[in-house]
């Protein structure tokens, strides 16, 4: 290695299961790999697939921590594999797919379907005022601080870590998760969205929404974008309580 020491022998224990293969059962499979400088789980998993086992399924896209494709359970904790350096882990590394989401195979899960379902239910888009915007005219002004605040909540990459780390989501299939609640908080803040608290209450004012959260804050701790989920959920809950009492 860079410091002259001999490279570590890493052992990867990977949860394998391909539901498309008749008779296949979930099992832990071990792979050995020599560690290299700057090795990330992205590099390691590709090396295993290229050199040892062409059937190993996992998802990477940007490999830069930007797109959220590669969330998985890394030693039991949800995280982005692409930006996890092997040197931050022990010599034995256990990888498993995110729970809650439908399994595709091995480390690959269908977060896309889940996120689309959540988006449709919560209508995660700006509900515009009547009448089309005249694109030829100067854009509506927005306070620069407000734009930054909205961006702060808009940074969610829908990786699914918060859902995988959430006690409620594991028990309650329709729980919208911190990802959903954060989106509601984001659109609530956005003056371009015409929805009122009454409308938002319709969407998240129940146990599948903001009242389902048990405040265990698994979501907050595992969010790879460090979104302020804890404060946002607490704030949203207060707003929804007062809306509910109206």
């Amino acid at each position: 290695m860079a410091d002259g020491t001999a490279p570590r022998k890493l052992i990867f224990k990977i949860l394998r299961y391909n539901p498309k293969v008749p008779g296949d059962r979930p099992r832990l499979q071990s792979y050995q790999l020599e560690e290299a400088d700057g090795m990330t789980l992205f590099i390691a998993l590709n090396e295993i697939r290229d050199k040892q086992d062409g059937s190993l399924a996992f998802d990477f896209v940007c490999r830069a921590g930007i797109c959220g494709s590669c969330a998985m359970m890394i030693d039991g904790r949800p995280g982005l594999a692409c930006r996890t350096l092997t040197k931050s882990l022990g010599a034995e590394i256990t990888l498993a797919p995110l729970p809650v989401f439908e399994l595709i195979a091995d480390l690959s899960v269908d977060t896309g379907k889940w996120m689309r379902g959540m988006s449709e239910r919560l209508e995660t888009w700006v509900h515009l005022k009547e009448g089309e915007v005249d694109l030829r005219r100067i854009e509506e002004r927005m306070d620069p601080d407000l734009a930054e605040e909205i961006f702060e909540l808009d940074r969610c990459i829908e990786c699914g870590c918060c859902v995988a780390g959430c006690g409620t989501a594991r028990m309650r299939e329709d729980f919208v998760g911190a990802v959903g609640l954060n989106k509601i908080a984001r659109f609530r803040l956005d003056p371009r969205d015409t929805r009122s608290d009454e409308d938002f209450y319709e969407l998240v004012g129940d146990d599948n929404g903001v009242f389902g959260c048990m405040s265990l804050l698994g979501c907050h701790d595992v969010c790879p974008k460090q979104l302020p989920l804890q404060t946002q959920i607490a704030f949203l809950r207060r707003k929804m309580v007062s809306q509910g009492m109206k």
């Binding site: 515009l128 961006f151 371009r192």
Partner: peptide, 8 residues
């Protein structure tokens, strides 16, 4: 108009 939080 669609909600992109452009820096202002």
């Amino acid at each position: 108009a669609w909600g992109v939080p452009w820096s202002r």
